[in-house]
Design a protein around this nucleic acid. Structure first.
Length: 325
DNA sequence: ATCCTAGGACGTCATATTAT
DNA sequence: ATAATATGACGTCCTAGGAT
């Protein structure tokens, strides 16, 4: 899916291009479109540009042989090896900027990028990005055989060592088993088991094949984890399918070692925090990847535009050179 | 078949940033 | 001001691909 990159300006520098020229520069459709889109290009010119701040509004003035000028205001720094070169070529980068300004810009550019901001804007643009379930109130309910979920966001462990939590709204987070336990959490929402119905949801874990896992809900429904790829899928099925149900155990990992109540609380809080951070890190990586993809696309587009503009400029130069003769 | 290496994904910690 | 969240940095694991 392609996104505009609403916030990339901060990191790639804002882009803008204006082609104010005594000579009107006719764009072909595609370029014109993207130009109005706020794209930029930066072309080495054969006349001295106005002092160009590093990050903003470097204005390049092209003097055509007929005396007309074309101003190009661009910010993205072009490769030094621009196609158009001239004897009097001067760099577009201005050096007359105040040190304070450039320091400010450096500061801004060196700040951590907020992928959240970016994604928020992205999501407000189009579809809404599914929010990660918030976990507000947490308690651990330990039971010897059956987990009665009395409070959202409890941490449970099945007999096979798999951990899961249930948060408000019925979001169930599964974790593959193992000593490290909470790795590889998956979130899903149980429409029928949903809601913080105290004591209403009983989960039973029934290992089946190596590829599927099932949870028996108190309503008689069965939650089946299908064979997974990157994104596991789950189905809630009717109880009609006779399940080989396994032992059910649900207890907080901390409770299993029976630590003192206070230590248990601390452990539980830590687990919840780690779990949240794990999810956050995953989401952050996802956003970052999306953002980088976005930037790469942008680069491709801008490179194309740069090429086109350079060719146009060449053509115009040719035209006016011939006229001048 | 085994070893080595690069690259990707993950979890955790520390800390920057944002929300309340 | 404080809590919550997001992100950079680091270490670990896994996998694919190449060299031996």
């Amino acid at each position: 899916m392609e996104h505009a990159c609403p916030d990339e300006a901060l990191y790639v520098n804002a882009r803008s291009i204006t082609m104010e020229a005594v000579v009107s520069v006719q764009q072909d459709g595609s370029v014109s479109d993207s130009l109005t889109d706020g794209e930029s290009s930066q072309i080495n010119s054969d006349s001295s540009p106005s002092p160009a701040p590093l990050a903003q509004s470097g204005v390049t003035v092209f003097q055509l042989p007929g005396g007309q000028t074309v101003q190009v205001q661009g910010v993205i720094q072009a490769q030094p090896a621009s196609v158009i070169q001239s004897p009097q070529q001067t760099g577009v980068e201005g050096d007359g900027d105040s040190a304070v300004d450039s320091q400010k810009r450096l500061e801004i550019l060196s700040r951590r990028p907020s992928y959240r901001k970016i994604l928020n804007e992205l999501s407000s643009d189009s579809r809404s990005v599914p929010k990660i379930e918030e976990e507000k109130d947490e308690h651990v309910v330990a039971s010897s055989s059956v987990a009665t979920v009395t409070v959202p966001t409890s941490i449970y462990q099945t007999s096979s060592g798999q951990y899961f939590t249930i948060s408000q709204g019925g979001a169930l987070q599964l974790a593959s088993g193992g000593a490290e336990a909470l790795g590889g959490l998956q979130t899903l929402t149980l429409p029928s088991a949903g809601g913080p119905q105290a004591g209403a949801t009983i989960l039973q874990y029934a290992p089946q094949t190596t590829e599927t896992s099932q949870f028996l809900l108190s309503g008689g429904q069965v939650l089946v984890q299908a064979a997974t790829g990157d994104m596991p899928t789950y189905q809630i099925r009717s109880p009609a399918s006779g399940l080989p149900q396994a032992v059910v155990m649900a207890a907080s990992p901390g409770a299993m070692h029976s630590p003192p109540p206070h230590a248990e609380e601390v452990t539980r809080k830590r687990e919840v925090r780690l779990m949240k951070n794990r999810e956050a890190a995953r989401e952050c990586r996802r956003k970052k990847k999306e953002y980088v993809k976005c930037l790469e696309n942008r680069v491709a587009v801008l490179e194309n535009q740069n090429k086109t503009l350079i060719e146009e400029l060449k053509a115009l130069k040719d035209i006016y050179c011939h006229k001048a003769e």
